[in-house]
Design a protein around this nucleic acid. Sequence first.
DNA 1: CCAGAAGTCTATCATTGTTAGATATTAGAT
DNA 2: ATCTAATATCTAACAATGATAGACTTCTGG
Lengths: 211, 211
Amino acid sequence: MTTKAKPEQPEQSASRRRRERERQQMRTRLLEAARDIAAEEGWNAVTIRRIANKLEYTAPILYQYFSSKESLFVELMMVGFTELADQLKVAAQAPPEERLAAMAEAYWTFAFASPELYQAMNGMDGVPFGTAETPLEAKAAFRTFRIALQSIAEARGAEVVDPIGAVDTVWAFLHGCVSLAMAGRVAGGGDRAKTLMLNGLEPLFTAQVRG
Amino acid sequence: MTTKAKPEQPEQSASRRRRERERQQMRTRLLEAARDIAAEEGWNAVTIRRIANKLEYTAPILYQYFSSKESLFVELMMVGFTELADQLKVAAQAPPEERLAAMAEAYWTFAFASPELYQAMNGMDGVPFGTAETPLEAKAAFRTFRIALQSIAEARGAEVVDPIGAVDTVWAFLHGCVSLAMAGRVAGGGDRAKTLMLNGLEPLFTAQVRG
DNA sequence: CCAGAAGTCTATCATTGTTAGATATTAGAT
DNA sequence: ATCTAATATCTAACAATGATAGACTTCTGG
């Protein structure tokens, strides 16, 4: 219990390792197939038979790699949060004055580059979303956001009063803008929605700051 | 084509009127049944058979009143926006200083008093949301919001720079807060999320105003 | 009292997610 | 090299879903 978590097979045969790897590859192939279908025809078109067919398998294959269709969705949701966290981390490297806008833009870009993922993450459209504990992967994105907000405040010679609340507030605003825009509910379309988002961001953040 | 739209039956027999009314009542009964099931067990549990059973009918009855299950959902979405518009209109009667917070609170209260409706309106959970033109009913709520924002600005001796954009911005923020809170993604739970929403609202609105 | 319209039901359809059981393929020890 | 056991995949079937067709009953208006 000192160095490794699972010291069951100290000597893993090479072939066993290979099969483990192939198994994981099959999982990601299934995930990508589902994602592709969703991207092209929406989540309602994603059935286990279509996923399997896309890889030239038959339907029950899914249950060798996922416990259910929903669990595949959940995993795809985690994939989404991981990708989002990555892109936020990149945007967080922008200079402090542009950092906030850069991260908002990264959030927006991610959402509209992969709407099917964004929907899976936020339970829109036909994605069942019932048992949603906040995924651990989301916390990484959250953490990136928190550090960024604090560093921006610091660069302004101030501090974020309630860092966690600030992230929730900013995140909620970004999500709201994206969500409404994606549903086609913002007059003037996506470009205008993005502008409104970027305009609203600054005062919203400033109010989270003191000093 | 001058006074009435459909002058087919100028003399509508009383019984015909009664049957028309009964037909409409049956529609709303079906809508309420669907809503009740969704409120108790979530949208995934809403099947045409359960809706019909709840009213002691058999499944195909639905198709005498709606063209499909989805069209029933769409109509329920419109019901939701109508109810929301009503409650916003009530909140808009608060004195100007409290009006903004009152309307945000009304939005929040509506969402959590009828989460199943809110989900139907915003395509969360298991509600198919594919072909969503912005419903006309939403425009009433939108309009109420716009007038309220302008009146609040006026009471402060200022004006809203871009009224439509201001409504979109505020609405997006409210929706984002509710959406994250409903998904259980706000640390500290619903009460904290509501506080964050009310706190963020004021600076967000102020930034929409000039003079 | 009667023709037709309106309302409802039974029976059925293809499709969905899921499982059981059979069958082929592979791994590791002898 | 061969046997056994595990792994991978398939076929066949299940109940439940949304939806449709056609029969049956009830009501309406003349």
